[in-house]
Design a binder for these strands. Structure first.
Lengths: 331, 331
DNA sequence: ATGAAAGCGCTAACAT
DNA sequence: ATGTTAGCGCTTTCAT
């Protein structure tokens, strides 16, 4: 039998109201009673029922986290920080994975809402019309734009421009770009940031499009690279690090040396980026800061949850997968 | 204002009991009323409050998932499948990350229990004494042993023996092993499976110990490899794929060719294993099957949740990071 | 087959 | 400062 607040009250010889106040910590309970109650709680090993509390307070101490793919290291990192911060704030995390399926996304969010979470952190798949979810669950949209909502995210456009700058600065002129799925706003933002910057410098990149994963990067990379050296790009940027890693694999399979014959730059700076061979040049995201702001906004409805955009700068991390174009000639 | 079951009842001209029965789907409600109620539900966009339902039923439609590290691809994969299966069963997933900290683990589980989940899936850090959690939350322990519980897991011991067999069969005799943290049961099981098998073949491996991550694999790899060729192992097995990938990196830094001069075999078969260079030979885990059984056991208290062990076989996946020892000589 | 009513375990308003 | 009490929104007997 699970003990409840009534058992504690009876055992301690106080009213359940007093026990509740001790639980809430902030109320005015005399020191004597407080200690008595606390002792009884320990003695009976009483665990407050959050479900009952949630019903009464009309919201639970949970935040819903909706992400497309937990096996994507960037989202895993985000989830990790969100969970840690939430836990420290006494919140639980309800995890939903949409698997990049818009219908599942809608169903998942509807399902989450039934548990009356305090807040929702969602990385949406599509920028489609905002679901009209309940006013008392503040929603903060992260990483990808959802119309009608503020966006908390790294500055995809600016970050991609950083990548373009880096490549141009290295002397590359034949440049290709592996984009993410066209229906994802994040793909469009990164692509636009990269391509616009290149065009401004008079360079017209070859663009291919795929998913945000290793496999896609490898396949697309092969398509871009499997041709005569003078007809292929000397530098390729990708929409995320996983594509870049797949691309590295394709290059290796084709005997193309990185960075001597090909420069590669990714986006995200996942942990693996610094560990593969060659270490990947990429655009780093301030994930922990994003997580921190996301939880805060989900809790109090401020920031991005209040409709304001909150864009953080990405940072160029130069490693060994990019080099000046001249190296090719000297090789 | 959020609509509740009372609003629906009033609007449909029935009792709340009838609405509840329609919601439960399985009750005996006349077709006429049923349709009327369903229409009203749609009309008012009624979303049943799971918190109230949970209070009344004394448990919620949630399962708690407790894992050490979501950025570990194996756990990410596990979480992904658990979430997908749970969602299909109408359950939500409460995610807890223990970050390999025993104190956090205990606190997380206590916290989860306050939400009265139907079941708990936990990948424990330490084999320490079983927490006496509530009888009405069935707990299934996955991947790592917790005394007093059944274990649902790949057969770590047998899988590691497979790896040892593979290396021996390739003719290797100077073999090293990078183990996981000694306090993790999974480390001990894999290590024992590998080492015992080797000893039975008269081979005494050199063993080093570290964490289950890239960084540790790289550092330990360097320690093992940074010596004269005739004094170092011709094959190294690791306790997981991430260590193996770190090891590959160390080998590459030292100019040691894999698999020509060194064979490397991992454990887990994470997605990345088939994408790095060289593609990693490893022991594959039936993650999805584990997830399926974990959710089933968490729901009905059967299988591993009933105290029975449920060990699934791992499978040797041969790729390009292992080769016969003779190759070295011919090189 | 349907309605009425009693809680589930808590919080918060209202008394004292 | 502490006790009493009315619900939160459902599910589930128990009547009818």
């Amino acid at each position: 039998m699970v003990v409840n607040i009534k058992d504690v009250a009876r055992q301690a010889g106080v009213s359940i109201g007093t026990v509740s106040r001790v639980l809430a910590k902030n109320e005015t309970v005399g020191p004597a009673l407080r200690e008595k109650v606390e002792a009884t709680i320990r003695e009976l090993d009483f665990k407050p029922n959050h479900v009952a509390r949630g019903l009464r307070r009309r919201r639970t101490d949970m935040i819903g986290l909706v992400i497309p793919d937990i096996t994507n290291p960037f989202f895993a990192e985000l989830a990790k920080h969100v969970e840690a911060i939430a836990f420290r704030s006494g919140l639980s995390v309800l995890l939903s994975i949409t698997n990049d399926d818009p219908e599942i996304e809608v169903a998942q969010i509807e399902s989450l809402l039934k548990s009356r979470p305090t807040g929702l952190i969602v990385v949406p798949i599509q920028s489609g019309q905002s679901q009209g979810w309940k006013g008392d669950t503040s929603t903060v949209v992260v990483d990808r734009r959802l119309v009608g909502h503020g966006l908390l995210s790294v500055d995809h456009h600016g970050g991609a421009a950083l990548a373009a700058d880096h490549l141009i600065g290295l002397g590359h002129r034949r440049i290709a770009y592996i984009a993410g799925p066209a229906d994802a706003p994040v793909s469009r933002a990164r692509r636009a940031g990269f391509v616009d910057h290149l065009k401004a410098a008079g360079i017209e990149p070859e663009i291919v499009e795929g998913h945000f994963d290793y496999v896609s990067g490898e396949a697309l990379g092969r398509r871009l690279l499997d041709r005569a050296p003078e007809r292929r790009a000397t530098a390729i940027a990708t929409a995320n690090d996983q594509q870049a890693i797949g691309l590295l694999r394709a290059a290796d399979d084709l005997g193309i040396k990185v960075p001597d014959q090909l420069s590669v730059i990714g986006f995200d700076d996942i942990p693996l980026a610094s560990l593969i061979t060659p270490r990947l040049t990429t655009i780093g995201q301030p994930v922990e800061e994003i997580a921190k702001r996301a939880v805060a906004a989900a809790l109090d409805g401020s920031g991005a949850a209040a409709g304001k955009d909150d864009l953080l700068s990405g940072v160029l991390v130069v490693r060994n997968s990019t080099a000046a174009v001249g190296v090719e000639i000297s090789a």
